[in-house]
Design a protein around this nucleic acid. Sequence first.
DNA 1: CGACCGATTGAAGACACTCAAGATGCGTGG
DNA 2: CCACGCATCTTGAGTGTCTTCAATCGGTCG
Lengths: 242, 242
Amino acid sequence: MPANNPAIDLDQVRRQCARCDLRELCLPAGLDSADVDRVDQMVADRTSLASGDTLYHAGSPFRALYVIKSGSLKTQAVSEGGELQILGFHLPGEIMGFDALAGERHQCSAEALEASSVCRLPYAELERISASVPGLQRQFMRLVSREMGDDHDHMAMMGRNQAISRLALFLHSMSKRQARLGRSADQLTLTMSRADLANYLGLVLETVSRLFGRLQEMGVIEVRRREVKILDREGLKSIGEC
Amino acid sequence: MPANNPAIDLDQVRRQCARCDLRELCLPAGLDSADVDRVDQMVADRTSLASGDTLYHAGSPFRALYVIKSGSLKTQAVSEGGELQILGFHLPGEIMGFDALAGERHQCSAEALEASSVCRLPYAELERISASVPGLQRQFMRLVSREMGDDHDHMAMMGRNQAISRLALFLHSMSKRQARLGRSADQLTLTMSRADLANYLGLVLETVSRLFGRLQEMGVIEVRRREVKILDREGLKSIGEC
DNA sequence: CGACCGATTGAAGACACTCAAGATGCGTGG
DNA sequence: CCACGCATCTTGAGTGTCTTCAATCGGTCG
């Protein structure tokens, strides 16, 4: 804990936002350095998660939002009938826990797909500070709105009734999100299992597996397990539109 | 227009939030009467829409959010390939236009499904006022969060691979939303066409039509055109979970 | 009343699912 | 280091469900 450490460490923690690679995507985007420091001080802690660890459970009381610093997570909800639906895959810079604001409990669970780290933002603090930092308020809204946009992309995928369109759209959108993070848009490392992906797309895992094969035969991608290389971006896009 | 009318009308417009049936669902929920008045003053105008009218188009510049006062609307997005996806059906008390905050343009179009009216909230005003009215800020977040929850329900519907589950879940969720508005939970009047509903559920319209028939044969609903009566709520629920 | 739009119904086929077996990769322990 | 077991992914064959294409019905409005 920071309290146990000398000044060096405290300073390091305080200045992390300013040094973070994600600062242009995350809450500090567009803020001046004094305000970035205030955001920094608001961050309660930066937690590490191992693959499979749960960040929060559906039903647990809501206290904080989380911004992903590294790694990736999935969110999933279980219906009253016990059916599980994966709601999203989340990458660094994205904000999580937002759906809990309506009630006072989380509506879905969040689980790490690989070793990951997140910044915890106690919501009471965020509310207090954003009242006096207008830029923060605005950037927060932008993040939430982007999250909604991702949900809409998800629906557009599930709405296609050709299964291969869904997978093609997924790969295309994943590629765009990777690029947004400054990573290669053509070399994807999927961190979710085929079962997760199938559930996300509204398919069964065998179908997803077969479709990866078909896309490879068609020459638009190269698949090796969870490594996907996009060979023909335009081809992929047109399959997504069929 | 209000400007052309005497004081009586102005006063009436100003006091509308306090008298509105939706005040407990809408932005004023939980505010004291002075703050309700401030919200009232923020409402730029209350627009009437005829069935088929567009509230905003995808790509048009974002200036305001809208709260539905009466009627119902659909939101839809068109992908780059020209494929249309209906993103949601929206009922009174719900907030619209939120997905535009990330860019400065609307990401989807909103169209009235029947004669409707909406309250227009210029976003600049909303930002300004919510900084000084903490309760408003909080309630705004709750509405946005509820919107996200509705999106998640939508995904859960599309994720079911039995088509009949999707329709059953849709009817069940529609029933709950109607009840939230104080309307009968068992007598639904669907304002969208079969084609709209099919698109929303990721099916074709013929399938939806057949499924209505099957649900009626099973004795869980009674359908007559767009009028649906729920006869067996539990049965409907269990079909949604199959 | 006749035309039109939306909804229903029918028949045939395609596509994704189910069930099942086999392959591949990974971690563990001998 | 290899052998083993387990988990994940792939591949196969057969079935069922949803889609497609087409015709009919019903209600609404000029």
